[in-house]
């Protein structure tokens, strides 16, 4: 246990790096998910086809291969990425490709009647998506998005293999200098577990927050308040 206490500051820094990588690549993942997911649904083939290729390639190959490719192979084209950049790019694009399928699926399963109502009201496709279809699809997207984010968090450990000094990287360092394997690895296992648990809590909070009937209840409370005011 002593190694864990002695090296706590190092582990703490590693934890911060892990969180940084997760937040940056999580943000990239969301942007990629909506861009690729919506592009996939486009009726223009020159938009939907490249999106389809992107999604299949990034889902069809290993995250680790993608990360190594960005880190080791890209320099052959004269592009040398900072390890953190390569790591965040690979994670964001890879998990984004999975999340893009979530976006596509949630939107494609929207009731046809909603689109028809929009057409009947003269709403153009962009307006339909922005005001009606996407807001309605969010509740359906949240649980699978939560899974993708937990996956992303766990996969941040792979960035240690391209020399980003995250939690796993620090643990490996401490292991090789102290030889205290069990305590170190158990500690970071627990840390990762706590992080993914917190992510799960966040997801279910968001789910409750965005649930359709929740909004209805809020509106009802507003109503009854107004009635009370009216009665007074």
């Amino acid at each position: 246990m002593s190694a864990v206490i002695d090296y706590a500051p190092l582990l703490w820094q590693g934890l911060l790096t892990t969180i940084l990588v997760a937040v940056l690549s999580g943000a990239l993942c969301l942007v990629v998910a909506f861009a690729a997911g919506l592009a996939r649904l486009s009726s223009h083939r020159f938009i939907s086809w490249p999106a389809g290729v992107f999604i299949e390639v990034f889902r069809g190959t290993s995250l680790l291969v993608q990360m190594f490719w960005l880190f080791f192979a890209l320099p052959f084209f004269g592009i040398q990425l900072h390890p953190l950049t390569a790591a965040v790019l690979a994670l964001g694009l890879n998990e984004g490709a999975y999340a893009a399928e979530v976006v596509r699926g949630a939107i494609a399963s929207r009731a046809k009647g909603q689109t028809e109502a929009c057409i009947a009201l003269g709403m153009e496709p962009a307006l339909r998506l922005r005001r009606i279809i996407i807001p309605q699809s969010i509740p359906a997207m949240l649980p699978p998005f939560g899974n993708v984010m937990v996956d992303l968090l766990k996969n941040t450990s792979l960035v240690s293999l391209v020399t980003v000094a995250d939690l796993t990287f620090r643990a490996q360092m401490i292991r090789s200098s102290t030889g205290q394997t069990t305590a170190i690895f158990l500690t970071i296992l627990v840390l990762y577990f706590v992080l993914s648990y917190l992510l799960t809590l966040l997801t279910s909070w968001l789910e409750r927050r965005f649930a359709l009937d929740r909004r209805a209840l809020a509106a009802q409370r507003k109503d009854s308040k107004m009635m009370k005011v009216g009665a007074a």
């Binding site: 009731a111 009647g113 909603q114 028809e116 109502a117 009947a120 009201l121 003269g122 709403m123 153009e124 307006l127 005001r131 009606i132 807001p135 309605q136 359709l212 909004r215 509106a219």
Partner: peptide, 23 residues
Amino acid sequence: FQQFNLFPHMTAMENIIEAPIHV
């Protein structure tokens, strides 16, 4: 429509003002 097709995430008022404002 037969199935109304109201926007379920919006109040009655929001359903009605959506298109006049944005279209």
